[in-house]
């Protein structure tokens, strides 16, 4: 393979992975930015998204509907969890959140296991994107192009949502000074429930989109939560733009690292994180820790 086609296909691969990493990381970072809590159950919502997506495709035959249903289901469960449980813990220290969200992962995983069984489940690529395109005579899956595109679309949508809408304004304000926002007569608790739900919904969206690549399986959660944390730490806790940059960086380091240094495949992502933390301890766009 010549250098140019190689570079083009690998860059596209990297962008498709970046999109998946971004869906995972951005929800976690939004939740952290507003609520100052680490949502350990984030990977489980990602997994839940894949399984709900599988069932939606099974029943309705529509992958597109799955992209709507799964985030709604996961978002509702997330918001309900915040309303019912997390809300009572805000006066406690951070370890309480870690414990209770970790507890949620145990419960949700068990529910998923009992509902869908232990077998990995296949989610087919939607027909529209099942084909391949030839880039310089190299076959490339259309679905990966779609993933990269979806990443761009969702990133712009979230950015516009944060910048242009009233709820987006409240979210930004709450993350900067929640007491002041509260004093101005805004129900900060509702903002929190909302953002927790949105974060979980974004994770589930990532889960549905990842399912055709990795199948829906019980191993997804543990795997995803580590990636999500790495993205958030590299990008800076609570930074939307940071998580976007981190997702792209990690994806490129993984794709090219795996190719040129396969023996260090596992370490590449962590080396990048180490480097970023040495230079900027608070993450790329984070406040100094």
């Amino acid at each position: 393979m010549d250098l140019l086609p190689f570079l083009v296909t690998q860059c596209l691969n990297a962008f498709s992975q970046a999109a998946l990493l971004f869906f995972l990381g951005v929800g976690l970072t939004l939740i952290f930015g507003i609520m100052r809590i680490v949502n350990f159950a984030h990977g489980t919502f990602y997994m839940l998204g894949a399984f709900v997506g599988y069932t939606t495709v099974r029943i309705t035959g529509s992958f597109w509907l799955a992209l709507v249903v799964a985030p709604l289901v996961a978002g509702s469960i997330g918001a309900a969890f915040e309303l019912g449980l997390l809300r009572r813990l805000y006066r406690r220290d951070a370890s309480a959140f870690l414990m209770v969200t970790f507890g949620l992962t145990l419960v949700l995983e068990e529910v998923i296991r009992l509902t869908w069984g232990v077998q990995a489940l296949q989610v087919e690529v939607p027909d529209l994107f099942a084909g391949i395109v030839f880039l310089f005579d190299e076959p490339f899956p259309v679905y990966r192009l779609f993933l990269a595109g979806a990443g761009v679309v969702v990133a712009i949508a979230i950015w516009q949502f944060l910048e242009r809408t009233r709820l987006g304004l409240l979210i930004r304000a709450t993350s900067q000074n929640s007491e002041m926002v509260h004093a101005l007569g805004v129900d900060v608790n509702m903002v929190r429930s909302g953002i927790f739900g949105i974060g979980c919904g974004l994770a589930a969206l990532g889960g549905v989109l990842a399912a055709p690549l990795v199948t829906a399986s019980l191993g997804m959660a543990a795997n995803a939560i580590i990636d999500a944390f790495v993205i958030v730490i590299i990008g800076g806790m609570g930074s939307f733009l940071g998580s976007l940059i981190a997702a792209v960086l990690v994806a490129f380091v993984q794709v090219f690292g795996n190719y040129y240094f396969p023996d260090f495949a596992l370490a590449a992502m962590y080396l990048l994180m180490l480097l970023v933390l040495v230079i900027r301890p608070g993450g790329l766009l984070g406040k100094e820790a």
Binding site: M1, F6, T9, Q10, N13, S16, Q17, R144, A210, L213, V214, G219, N223, Q254, V255, N258, Y259, P262, D263, A265, L266
Partner: peptide
């Protein structure tokens, strides 16, 4: 030969290597 770490999710580079 090439070895992928346990828990690898993106196999695109390995597929490229096999093809190459």
């Amino acid at each position: 030969d090439v070895y992928s770490p346990m828990g690898t999710k993106d196999f695109s580079t390995y597929i490229t290597k096999i093809r190459q």
